[in-house]
Lab assay of single mutants.
Amino acid sequence: ERLAYIADHLGFSWTELARELDFTEEQIHQIRIENPNSLQDQSHALLKYWLERDGKHATDTNLVECLTKINRMDIVHLME
């Protein structure tokens, strides 16, 4: 799945992406607590919560915009 692929590449950027996707610091902290050992797991959790929260509004376009804002064009190019 594309989101899994994106999550695998996010690394430390997942928190920046979370902020761009309008997650609160508290929500970010919660994701860290729930997935303490792996940045990859934290990234996967973030994208899963985003899909659950935004439903049909959780679009590739939205994700590309946010990834561009945090200067992760490498991931944007991987999505093309």
Rank of each mutant, 00 (worst) to 15 (best):
R2D: 15
L3F: 15
L3N: 08
L3G: 04
L3Q: 11
L3H: 10
L3M: 13
L3W: 06
A4S: 13
A4K: 11
A4C: 08
A4I: 04
A4L: 09
A4V: 09
Y5M: 01
I6T: 01
A7P: 02
D8L: 14
D8R: 14
H9V: 10
H9T: 02
H9I: 11
H9G: 11
L10D: 02
L10F: 04
L10A: 01
L10S: 01
G11R: 08
F12R: 10
F12D: 02
F12E: 04
S13P: 03
S13C: 03
S13W: 05
S13Q: 14
S13A: 07
W14P: 00
W14Y: 03
W14H: 00
W14G: 00
T15R: 09
T15A: 11
T15M: 04
T15H: 03
T15Y: 02
E16G: 09
E16C: 07
L17S: 00
L17P: 00
L17H: 00
L17N: 00
L17T: 03
A18F: 00
A18G: 06
R19Q: 14
R19G: 12
R19D: 12
R19A: 08
R19P: 04
E20I: 02
E20P: 00
E20A: 06
E20M: 15
L21S: 02
L21Q: 03
L21G: 08
L21Y: 00
D22N: 06
D22L: 09
D22T: 10
F23E: 00
F23Y: 03
F23I: 14
T24A: 09
T24P: 05
T24E: 11
T24F: 09
T24V: 03
E25F: 04
E25Y: 06
E25C: 04
E26T: 11
E26C: 04
E26D: 09
E26G: 09
E26I: 10
Q27P: 01
Q27N: 15
H29Q: 11
Q30Y: 04
Q30G: 08
Q30F: 11
I31Q: 01
I31D: 00
I31C: 13
I31G: 00
I31R: 00
R32L: 10
I33P: 00
I33Y: 11
I33E: 14
E34G: 09
E34H: 10
E34Y: 05
E34Q: 15
E34S: 11
E34T: 10
N35E: 10
N35I: 07
N35T: 08
N35Y: 08
P36S: 06
P36Y: 04
P36G: 10
P36K: 06
N37W: 07
N37R: 08
N37M: 15
S38G: 10
S38V: 07
S38A: 13
S38F: 05
S38C: 09
S38D: 10
S38L: 07
L39T: 05
L39E: 11
L39S: 11
L39M: 10
L39K: 07
Q40S: 08
Q40T: 11
Q40A: 06
Q40C: 05
D41V: 08
D41Q: 11
Q42P: 01
Q42E: 04
Q42L: 03
Q42A: 08
S43G: 07
S43A: 03
S43L: 04
S43F: 02
A45V: 15
L47Y: 05
L47V: 10
K48C: 14
K48T: 14
K48R: 13
K48V: 08
K48F: 09
K48D: 09
Y49Q: 10
Y49N: 09
W50T: 09
W50M: 13
W50H: 06
W50F: 07
L51H: 10
L51W: 06
L51I: 12
L51Q: 15
L51Y: 14
L51P: 03
E52H: 07
E52D: 04
E52G: 05
E52K: 14
R53A: 09
R53I: 05
R53H: 07
R53N: 05
R53F: 03
R53S: 12
D54L: 10
D54C: 05
D54A: 11
D54V: 11
D54Y: 13
D54I: 02
D54P: 05
D54N: 11
G55M: 09
G55D: 14
G55Y: 09
G55E: 11
G55N: 13
G55A: 12
G55V: 10
G55P: 10
G55I: 07
K56T: 12
K56A: 11
K56F: 11
K56G: 11
K56R: 10
H57A: 13
H57R: 09
A58N: 14
A58E: 08
T59W: 07
T59I: 03
T59H: 09
T59Q: 13
D60M: 13
D60W: 08
D60S: 06
T61S: 08
T61G: 12
T61N: 03
T61P: 14
N62F: 04
N62E: 07
L63S: 01
L63A: 06
V64R: 13
V64N: 02
V64S: 12
V64T: 13
E65K: 07
E65P: 13
E65S: 09
E65M: 03
C66E: 15
C66S: 12
C66M: 13
L67A: 04
T68C: 03
T68D: 15
T68F: 14
T68E: 14
T68N: 03
K69H: 13
K69S: 10
K69I: 06
K69R: 12
K69Y: 12
I70C: 06
I70L: 09
I70S: 02
I70A: 07
I70Y: 01
I70R: 01
N71P: 05
N71G: 12
N71R: 11
N71A: 13
R72V: 01
M73D: 15
M73W: 13
D74G: 01
D74E: 05
I75P: 02
I75T: 03
I75C: 03
V76W: 09
V76F: 07
V76L: 08
V76Q: 06
V76S: 04
V76T: 04
